[in-house]
């Protein structure tokens, strides 16, 4: 990791990816520092996966400049991939091999000796709590177990940079928390993480810094805290009105908060003091079905930046 001080794990300048007429990534700039957990937050189709694939050296850059460990993926693809761990969006474990064989064979792809591969496979199976399933076929595993095995596989070469494309999409809450916990441990060990997600809680849990992506561009960049401070408020008052009253609300909440957001199913009031805003709503004679005060989240940031929810 001698070059990690001189050149950041990932650096992109005016990075573009086109598929025919479709612009998947439209001139984005970002830099990921060593040891950092960096997130790409955005809805489906925002360009997150295309960006990840370019970083993983399996998708040629259309234009702009991308370096991974200071090197050009076009020229040094194999060398760069040797230092990466990749967890793709859809699991692509080897269905013809057992759980343990998947890891051992993957070690071979990185030119590790068989004995070393077996040793690491056993360590990693323990790390992702799959040691008891070592001899099973991959197909017999649950979704969460497959995901953990894919993460273990991505660690077989002890990567300097781990790329995770929607690591917990499709997992139940328990499985997600287990994955998060393992990723957090890796981060503590100094592994640089770059991940995409459309879950704001995942981004808040794992990311030191993130970019919000929308329509192939970066809409904002910062730490979760900075982004929330800049684009949301400390607190948010969520009000639900009976469906027929909802349209009539327009205008009647003016002045009660820094900003009011009318969504199809609820109204959001952005304010530094949610309780006070709720009392003010009542004083105006409005009677919502429910009201909830919560802190501002990245979901609010995204809504503010794009006018849309993260998950449609």
């Amino acid at each position: 990791m001698t070059d990690s001080i001189a050149s950041p794990p990932i650096s992109a300048r005016n990075l573009v990816k086109r598929f025919g007429d479709l612009v998947a990534v439209d001139g984005i700039d970002f830099e990921v520092a060593a040891g950092e957990a960096f997130g790409f937050l955005g809805p489906n189709g925002a360009g997150k996966t295309s960006t990840m694939r370019m970083i993983a050296c399996v998708s040629p850059v259309t234009s702009g400049r991308l370096t991974v460990f200071g090197k050009d993926p076009e020229v040094y693809g194999a060398e760069i991939r040797g230092r990466l761990g990749v967890v793709p969006q859809a699991d692509n474990l080897d269905l013809e091999l057992t759980v343990r064989e998947n890891l051992i064979m993957y070690a071979r792809y990185f030119d590790l000796a068989w004995s070393e591969g077996r040793k690491r496979a056993d360590e990693l199976l323990e790390f992702v709590q799959l040691d008891e399933r070592a001899k099973d076929k991959v197909d017999d595993l649950s979704g969460g177990m497959k995901r953990r095995l894919t993460i273990a596989r991505a660690l077989i070469n002890q990567p300097d940079l781990l790329l995770l494309d929607e690591p917990t999409t499709g997992l139940d809450p328990q499985a997600r928390h287990l994955v998060w916990e393992r990723l957090y441990r890796l981060k503590q060990r100094g592994v640089t993480l770059a991940l995409t997600t459309h879950y704001m809680d995942e981004a808040e849990q794992l990311c030191d810094r993130l970019v919000v992506m929308d329509k192939a561009k970066i809409a904002a960049e910062g730490t979760p805290r900075e982004l929330i401070a800049k684009y949301s408020t400390k607190e948010v008052l969520e009000l639900r009105f009976p469906a027929d009253e909802q349209p009539a609300i327009d205008g009647r909440l003016d002045g009660l908060a820094d900003r009011v957001e009318l969504l199809p199913d609820r109204v959001l009031l952005y304010t530094s003091d949610g309780e006070e805003a709720a009392a003010a709503v009542h004083r105006r004679g409005l009677r919502p079905e429910s009201s909830l005060v919560r802190r501002g989240t990245l979901e609010d940031v995204f809504l503010r930046l794009t006018g849309r929810s993260l998950i449609d």
Partner: peptide
Amino acid sequence: YARTFEAVISTPVG
């Protein structure tokens, strides 16, 4: 179906 190569080409194997 197995997408075997997608996994393989993420490694130094081209």
